[in-house]
Design a protein around this nucleic acid. Sequence first.
DNA 1: TATCATTCTAGGGATTTTCCCTAATAAAAT
DNA 2: ATTTTATTAGGGAAAATCCCTAGAATGATA
Lengths: 216, 216
Amino acid sequence: MEKLRIVLAEDHLTVREGIKLLVNSQPDMEVIGEADNGSAAIKEVQKLAPDIIVMDISMPELNGLKATRRLKQVCPNVKVLTLTRHTDDAYLQQLIEAGASGYVLKQSAPTELIRAIRIISEGNSYLDPALTNKLFGGYASRSVLRGERKGDLTDREAEVLRMIAWGYSNKEIAAKMNISVKTVEAHKANAMRKLDIRSRIDIVRYAILQGWLQDN
Amino acid sequence: MEKLRIVLAEDHLTVREGIKLLVNSQPDMEVIGEADNGSAAIKEVQKLAPDIIVMDISMPELNGLKATRRLKQVCPNVKVLTLTRHTDDAYLQQLIEAGASGYVLKQSAPTELIRAIRIISEGNSYLDPALTNKLFGGYASRSVLRGERKGDLTDREAEVLRMIAWGYSNKEIAAKMNISVKTVEAHKANAMRKLDIRSRIDIVRYAILQGWLQDN
DNA sequence: TATCATTCTAGGGATTTTCCCTAATAAAAT
DNA sequence: ATTTTATTAGGGAAAATCCCTAGAATGATA
């Protein structure tokens, strides 16, 4: 019997090691590769061609969402199981569009992760029970129909939003980026229009989903 | 030979399970109790009287710092090993004052956690190598000498700071708390004076250390 | 190739928010 | 009984943000 070959992408070493122990304790699964950021995850998958990649959505360099999009382009056969700390559904929608097969909350029981791996390995998709109703709540499906693509911020826009979420003022951001305050304001306004958000709270929420506020 | 009896306090189930597997895979250690928040951790320790508690500093309800202070009052013999995501040292200082025996970064290798448990079980203290120099950098020891006690915010002050970190404006906070904007400003100013911080960035950093920005 | 959309840049002026200083009342500590 | 702390809040000055407009450069499209 062949074991399921799994690559693990998660930036916290201790957490990753814990998941590895859990997965390797299953008779039919095996962690064959690891990565601590999105870019490394893609390289690892290209090199090893695993059955499944288990990926944290909040990772430095290239976050889980973007990594998923790119992965499904270069290796459409590899199934992506995303792991997250959040219960917010804005991200969920995008992940499904990007081609993820499953979505497990870190808060869930470890057996759920194992179950999810088995389920998606059979070609099905897995949604954490805590999230299923969110997807069928109407809001998400509407945005599918609209076909809107949020999250396509330019680098500068993302940079400005990130710093705003971190509590920097426009003036401080302008100084750090060596541009005018007016330019910062413009990037901010454009980014907020693209994301269809209005307030600083929304920026913070978005930043948390992006993993921008992890650690320092 | 008696195994080291360990209680684990960490709010993310998957992470906790990973650490448990790691600890239980050691011949001389055993996880005898678990908790997913600070209050539960204290109850668990009082009930089980373990040798060591391994505790995440960012937990809901009662954070690791406050839980450590309280633990050292009710069970001074129990050794506290704190686990964190951050490399910031402001918190470190407070944890040492509160009576924690050790401080391990989640980013570190899992074997570091095991080492740390062994070291503090012998009555010594353990500091993650990444942090040792911070403690001896001068800044921290000065504040020890001054004997200042940061972090003693009142409930209202903490509430205001938390909301500011979340991106709410003073006006929005005033509306939510049903008080005048002027009062919000006063709480904010007093809290910042107590913490000796100046900017919104510092508020966000503080909030992240408190675990206030975890999840939703 | 010519045209259109997007990105990055930024100013003017109105509006909103925040900052600094002061202060009253009630509760808690000494 | 006196002092300190917590919560509340105003006035006026200063700072930051918002709304509108716009040019230059790059990239895409017809």
